[in-house]
Nucleic acid binder design. Sequence first.
DNA 1: CTGGTTTTGTACCGCACGGTATCAAACCGT
DNA 2: ACGGTTTGATACCGTGCGGTACAAAACCAG
Lengths: 199, 199
Amino acid sequence: MARPREFDVDAALDRAVDVFWEHGYEGASLAQLTEAMGINKPSMYAAFGDKRQLFEKAVQRYIAVGPAWEMEAFALPTAREATATFLHRTVDVVASDDHPHGCLVVQGIGKCSPDNRPMRDYVAQQRANALELIRERFERAVAEGDPTMNADPETLALYTAGLSEGIAVRANDGVPAAKLHRMVDLAIQGVFVQPVATG
Amino acid sequence: MARPREFDVDAALDRAVDVFWEHGYEGASLAQLTEAMGINKPSMYAAFGDKRQLFEKAVQRYIAVGPAWEMEAFALPTAREATATFLHRTVDVVASDDHPHGCLVVQGIGKCSPDNRPMRDYVAQQRANALELIRERFERAVAEGDPTMNADPETLALYTAGLSEGIAVRANDGVPAAKLHRMVDLAIQGVFVQPVATG
DNA sequence: CTGGTTTTGTACCGCACGGTATCAAACCGT
DNA sequence: ACGGTTTGATACCGTGCGGTACAAAACCAG
């Protein structure tokens, strides 16, 4: 029983994701954000709260599309296939020309002003969650007697997650996807047991 | 033939390195910097130019201590030893409690405001230089017929550099050095040829 | 049509930022 | 002792930031 909102909240959030993805939390100004979102500041404030909450919601939306393919990769039968698929798709995402290169969660806010420390901790928590997901996949592999496992799950998870972050940094620097894919092949080939052809 | 400066420029720069290391380029304010340096703004301006030049000089000083052990690592006889030493020492540096965790060059400025893009490009260039150094070491290994080499130099260099950046990110998140060292062991063991015991 | 409610646009606020004008104090060659 | 020169401290400037007050416009229930 009042005036309806003239813009689509989810669409506006998608635009905000792009701006944060390109400029990070500290580097994205409200003016830049609201212009990209096609709304003005009071509308943004009414719909999302403030800049911090907007960022948190943008990160949530950003990682919401992640688990789709992430879970798909982890559903593959062996740890080796799961990891290879996960890392290759990571390359596809962070080196795609459809979005800014790099990763919002890895580089959206790193070192920062003390005032923004809560946001830094927030994305660090997201990284920790991702690490935990990977570790659980490898724990499962051990429990299943996965023949491709060749290291303890925690170390292997840190290795996998660390590689994905290195990939994001280098993609952000402009290293082309093809080189990153070769790097992933190398990383997988050495660390997992090569499946043996039967027969 | 005039009043001499009352502070040590190099010592002040060291303090600036610490502040940038902890808060990044955008997150470090002039007030914070000059307070840590023990000088006031006009003195900083007279001695270093402006914030950008101060940052560039801080980065140069930061990486100046790097090559010392970096070159030492690369001087080791085999690519495997060189890489292992390089990565283990990287862990020692980025996870040390003597400094802020993480790496100034990797996380000091990532995604950022358009105005600060030149600084982002500057540190990206430093990362590219590091990658090139590593690649040259592996090229040399191939030329020498190094028996531990098992991949093409460019891919292996990207792998090594990418790992070092992943290590920096995770160290910044608080992952302890011991876990990172195990991750390095895993990364080395799989990708390089194991030296064979003679006899 | 009318009243109550919410959104929207403009114009603004206080503040902290990077950077600087100013002037007294400190130094050194002569 | 003195004059030219540079440092040092204070106080300030313009700007852009995140955030908001206010009033007009748009809507729906009755």
